[in-house]
């Protein structure tokens, strides 16, 4: 444990005075509530109210907010991915990944602390998301809602898994490509191509395997939360049935990414 904290302290020394890190982190901290506010404003003011009720329901009031905010925050997951790619490719650009090993870290120590950093960033962003949920829940002060339980809180866990999935893909790309700009470009390209394949597969070729592609499967953990009344109960029940599978496959992807990243770093020429 002491050794782990010592290693973590070294990583902190790398970040403490890195302005880009603080700027990107601040952007994430600001954008999650800000983006949700934009959606909140849109849903609250841009749709007609029927009998005083919003057409899209009350997505930002308790307990719906536990689903809505993680869904919206999920759209912004490219932001922590940019931060991860920047931090990891820096080590390659400055060749400090070699120097850290030369100075007395094992390769395993270097790569595991990077993976742990990704975990910590995921925890941090999840906390921001929870705080945003609470903010909007209290802001809306909507009429009495049923009390939230595991059915609602679990979306925080799903968000955590979804972000970990995205972040570890970013880490993998950063390690394979080594250059920040190129790694970010390919990461975005991959996101777009996967969405294209999913749309094509699902709508044109009617195949279901596309649902289990790396990003799509974790996206599916949090279905879109708006106008739930217009979605058939059968479809909701089908989603509910598939959740354990989506969760298992997402976790499996996480394990695979960790395995590839750590195996490659431990074996390759640095």
């Amino acid at each position: 444990m002491r050794n782990f904290l010592h290693t973590l302290r070294v990583e902190w020394l790398k970040l403490k005075y890195y302005r880009t890190f603080w700027i990107l982190l601040s952007v994430i901290i600001v954008c999650i509530p800000a983006f949700n506010y934009v959606i909140y404003d849109l849903t609250d003011n841009s749709f007609p109210k029927i009998n005083g009720q919003n057409l899209l329901g009350n997505p930002f009031s308790f307990p719906n907010v536990w689903k809505t905010v993680p869904y919206d925050a999920g759209i912004l997951l490219f932001m922590p991915a940019i931060l991860i790619i920047t931090l990891f490719t820096n080590e390659y650009s400055y060749r400090t990944h070699r120097q850290n090993i030369i100075d007395g870290w094992s390769r395993a120590r270097f790569i595991y602390i990077k993976i742990i950093e990704v975990f910590l960033l995921t925890v941090f962003v999840t906390i921001i998301t929870v705080l945003t949920c609470l903010y909007f829940g209290f802001l809306t002060r909507t009429p009495v809602q049923p009390k939230a339980g595991w059915q609602e809180y679990r979306f925080i866990l799903y968000f955590f898994v979804e972000m970990l999935d995205y972040s570890l893909i970013a880490l993998l790309f950063a390690m394979m490509i080594r250059r920040a700009g190129l790694a970010m470009g390919i990461f975005f390209l991959y996101m777009i191509i996967e969405q294209f394949v999913v749309s094509l597969g699902r709508n044109k070729y009617k195949v279901t395997w596309v649902d289990y592609l790396p990003e799509e499967v974790s996206d599916r953990l949090i279905p879109q939360p708006f106008a739930r009344r217009m979605i058939s109960p059968a479809s909701t029940s089908l989603w509910e049935k598939h959740v354990p599978l989506y969760l298992s496959i997402s976790v499996l992807y996480i394990i695979i990414y960790i395995f590839i990243v750590s195996w490659r770093f431990r074996k390759a020429d640095l």
Binding site: L13, K14, Y17, Y18, Y94, R95, T96, R98, Q99
Partner: peptide, 17 residues
């Protein structure tokens, strides 16, 4: 091989750690 954005002192603090 050093972190370009850090000072000499801070870079050596990392090496020492």
């Amino acid at each position: 091989n050093f972190y370009h954005y850090l000072s000499a002192q801070h870079n050596l603090e990392i090496a020492a750690a």
